[in-house]
Design a binder for these strands. Structure first.
Lengths: 222, 222, 222, 222
DNA sequence: CATGAATGAGGCTTCATTCAT
DNA sequence: TATGAATGAAGCCTCATTCAT
């Protein structure tokens, strides 16, 4: 947990610390990210970082949770879930998620990295835990859908939710391969906007959801 | 590329170098893996490593390719592809792959890590490249299958091959979550055998392939 | 010297500062003791410490002198010196000292540490100075005793007072070894009472004084 | 334990490393001693120190044991113990010890410091352990002397050996106070020789032994 | 070709002290 | 007077790589 000091910081400064750290962690994995570079970017003394956070791990976990909250807030605000069936929900959420990722690449990117962080003495199996949380959420949606008869009853929901979750997370990689660019490079070169449009991404997502639909839906489309 | 020196090594010594490096890279990601630990395990001088390889990256890429070759050789030898349809092929390959992973955890694990290595100034987007190679292979299979009418004609094969590849790669994570163990931990603790049987894994794989089949197969099951 | 600010503090707050600092200095030597931990224990701002004291050294020296005063006050109040010969006096004082140490472990412990602080750029030869003060006191007692014919006339009083003083100071270590415990550990684990009784310590002290008596007394016991 | 690398070093270089570290540890206590200063004195790279030793603690313990061995070797070579009674033995040893201390102040000084190192998370109760080893040695001598009727039978040998050991260790401090100099300062200022002669020290030691004799000897001198 | 010592940049973290509010 | 954030030097340690033998 960050120290109170951090929360007492003037808004502007706090954000600049967050930005610098976010940038570093969105460019490099946990181990490679360097506190020295962060403080230089943020224009603060190295010791100050330790006024704000217990240590590197504390900083990282805070940023990751913060990013998750920011994203969740965005999704909550930008999606209408009422009355939607499972596949429509998935579409709604993934479209909103894409818009978030395109507009907030650093927040998006630290989550991307966190979900791919390998086992590590300091962080443990962080990625596995994150993915599991997301999978559970999808599993709940699927259980509801199953009761409503929206998806086939002979499905192993654990496995299915795993697949849906995994693809949803990794589809980002497909997009970058398909359109021939690298998120990392874009961030590294400080480009403000990504070389793709929302619409292009959404077409891919719809294809993905079509794949899910055919694999899971109760009544095969005639 | 390794230096000629490496290939001139007596078989036994060369293998011990490979084993030591393989073990290190199967326990840690690229950045975390330590040359010092490797040479200690291998019982050779540190400088020798630089007689054999240009640098850490060279060593890593060699090992990864070597592991890929070993695995491909195993798959080639242990699968019968003739006359099989796409889904049977997938099953054949994934089952064989599982047997390889269980019997050769180190070779398996470096490939696991490589396919998850993040962008990195030294290695670039290695993981993306590896996954792309595998996806292309699956894409070829799917194109053939499509021509044979085994899979639906309205499928975006790029996307579909991505999904199939991605899930096939990551299903390992599902298995470890489902059966409550960690590959990393097993290797770290030097346990010889994994706490699961081939059969248990194969059941999961069959579920996964069922998912693919429903999503892709030309004629929906009646 | 502490600033006036410190003495203007409400009694309660001043004591809490003393307590926190005392605890830290009774657990760690001068260099290892941390101001950060102290202010946290005391629940005051870090800057405040510098309103009260010039610096770490000032704080330390104040505390040490304070502890010495407290102990001296205790000894003055709890010993009757009138009409006693040298050895009885020594016994009276060392017994009272033991009772003080057992009842006020923190005050006792900072003095223990101070008397063992090594030469140090900041503190100089503090321990030597402290021991010298105590030795001078004993030397005075011995001079008086010598004039009274209580101790042998052929004794080098400087050396003898050194020995008596040194043993009196270090006997604490003998006690802890003999009874198999560590003062440091007891304080660190926050145990309220020591695992020994006054009586046990006093027996040791009497043995020690017997040793002094035989070595110094004018007429050997028949 | 130092790494083999250290022992493979050319004699001259190894000694220069030892000298630099010895000097640092003879000037400062464990915590205050600085690896940076050591490598600068020794003229080697910081990383080299870690080719030789596991870490600071390893280096320290090695040096301390080394110094103990060197001193013990010196004492063994420069004392004749055969046929001597307890007090003569003590005299022989303490004289030799003094000559060692005067001729090898650095070796002497690290032992001096080690025997005064306070409890410490890294080193534990090192000083207590060292003193206990020395006390046991003296205790054995006293048991023999007791059987031979050289010392009084009503003595508590544990306590007596503690006192003898303690004084023998700390007498160095008496000497420096008596002759008005500071070992630390002498070393710090790089003076080659101490401002006292062997003879002066030996007179003090003889006084100390006289004190022991009167306190312990079986037949009081007539 | 093998060796293994040497390197020095860079890693994270702690610290006593200062100073603007 | 009280606060507590800011500072930056210094701490120990790890690392991949080089190079003389």
């Amino acid at each position: 947990m960050p120290h109170q000091t951090f929360f007492n910081l003037p808004e502007e400064k706090r954000q600049s610390v967050i930005d610098a750290a976010l940038e570093e962690f969105s460019l490099y994995d946990y181990k490679t990210a360097s506190l020295s570079r962060m403080v230089e970017k943020a224009g603060i003394a190295k010791g100050s970082m330790y006024q704000y956070f217990e240590n590197k791990k504390d900083l990282y976990l805070y940023l990751m949770n913060h990013a998750a909250e920011v994203k969740l807030g965005y999704l909550t605000e930008h999606t209408r879930t009422y009355g939607k069936d499972f596949f429509s929900l998935l579409k709604e959420i993934s479209h909103a998620s894409t818009r978030f990722n395109l507009s907030q690449p650093k927040y998006s990117r630290i989550l991307y990295h966190a979900a791919r962080e390998k086992h590590n003495e300091e962080l443990g199996d962080l990625a596995a835990e994150i993915r599991e949380v997301a999978r559970r959420y999808i599993k709940e949606m699927m259980l509801t859908a199953s009761q409503r008869g929206e998806i086939r009853s002979d499905i192993d929901i654990d496995l299915a939710s795993f697949c849906v979750n995994q693809i949803s997370i990794d589809i980002e990689d497909f997009v970058s391969t398909k359109f021939g660019f690298s998120y990392s490079q874009v961030l590294r070169e400080g480009q403000e906007s990504l070389p793709i449009t929302e619409q292009q991404v959404e077409e891919v997502l719809d294809g993905m959801i079509g794949f899910f639909r055919r694999g899971l839906e109760a009544k095969p489309p005639r």
